[in-house]
Amino acid sequence: MSAEEYRFRLFIAGNEPNSRLAKQNLRALCAAYLPERHYIEIIDVLQDFEAALQAMIMVAPAVVMTAPRPVTLFGALTDTARILAALGINEGDHHD
């Protein structure tokens, strides 16, 4: 098992339901599969539009994984199996 660090930038739009859900889902997924080796930066596009413009993020919620490789996800992060496949994480890496 590699000990690569996973870095995420989560773009949310204030406190709206999909953004809340995305935050919950990402945190749960990281806790389960990437304990102690993930970093999540949360950006509220309603507060910091400049960061959204620079990252060219037009929809929220959205997650940009910057390391170990670039991956972009749109939506409330509801389909764990698809997300794990996209991020290149084995389902067997689950930590309870």
């Binding site: 037009m58 939506g75 996209a86």
Partner: peptide, 13 residues
């Protein structure tokens, strides 16, 4: 190449 999983809106835009 972005992957869509779940609902989102155009608030950022």
């Amino acid at each position: 190449k972005a992957i869509v999983t779940g609902e989102f809106g155009i608030q950022s835009f």
